[in-house]
Nucleic acid binder design. Structure first.
Lengths: 143, 143
DNA sequence: GGATTTAAGGATATTTATATCTTTTATATA
DNA sequence: TATATAAAAGATATAAATATCCTTAAATCC
């Protein structure tokens, strides 16, 4: 459903939120990719994308690393949109450019409700909530 | 969400169901790819996959073509499983091999209900129902 | 200022998905 | 039986996603 990049991105963001709840120190690439079990160089690229999309802040140089602007609420849908684009949430399942209630593809009406619930859920699930669940050992970043 | 192959496959199956409701004649590759607006050679490969998966029957040679065994109910989920595999419906969103209620990924519980509704819907939407909607001009194969 | 560390940026490699083309096999009909 | 037609099968081409590597820029510490 999501691209591999997007999977990593969600884990990255949730992990930084989790770590930041415990300590205000910046977090570097190494501990991040170790924690979420992702290839380091590739994860670096994803961190770059997230930073460009302003979902994440970064500081270069010694003692540098990544952190979240705590004032901003970030939901899973924000991350998905930044990495995979908005088509994955809003686009037609069968590839129509304009799949509306009039002129719909053969799945449009069948699956409308379910897609909308999914999208709403991703729009309402924020990374701090997830981070708390990890603290309580109710969810994990890797197997 | 679905691969391009799977998008075409869903349209192929729905179109054959639609055509077959009007006439019992076999349907060839050309009218199929024309009707669903898909690349011909690529569509041929997908027809092959669907035939191997026994979702579709084929006859070679002059007057050959494709048809559906009307006795069998086929749902969208069958097509998705045949083309994209079962991971897309049952696998972990974040790539865990075993993402269960215990040891869940950070999205597992958050999105469990919505994924399950989506899956149920795909499991209960059959291609003949879709074909009827097309007949009534309530859905289309191409834009 | 020089050495070290860390993210950013650019180039390249690998794999998978998408797509096309050619040859082979099966069937019908003249 | 020869010819035409249509799907199956195999080979190849192209594009996109995934992944790695190397160099550059920014910040800290000595």
């Amino acid at each position: 459903m999501f691209s591999k990049s997007c999977e990593y991105a969600i884990k990255v963001m949730a992990f930084i939120a989790f770590r930041q709840a415990k300590s205000k120190e910046l977090i570097g690439l190494d501990p991040i990719s170790e924690a979420i079990d992702s290839p380091k160089a590739f994860t670096a690229k994803i961190l770059q994308q997230l930073t460009k999309a302003e979902l994440l802040k970064s500081v270069r140089g010694r003692t540098g690393g990544f952190y979240l602007d705590q004032n901003r609420e970030i939901v899973i849908a924000d991350i998905v949109r930044a990495i995979d684009g908005s088509k994955i949430l809003d686009g037609c399942l069968l590839g129509f450019g304009e799949c509306q209630d009039e002129n719909p593809c053969v799945l449009h009406h069948q699956i409308k409700k379910e897609r909308s619930s999914l999208k709403n859920r991703l729009n309402s699930t924020d990374i701090y909530t997830i981070a708390k669940r990890v603290s309580r050992k109710k969810a994990y970043f890797k197997e």
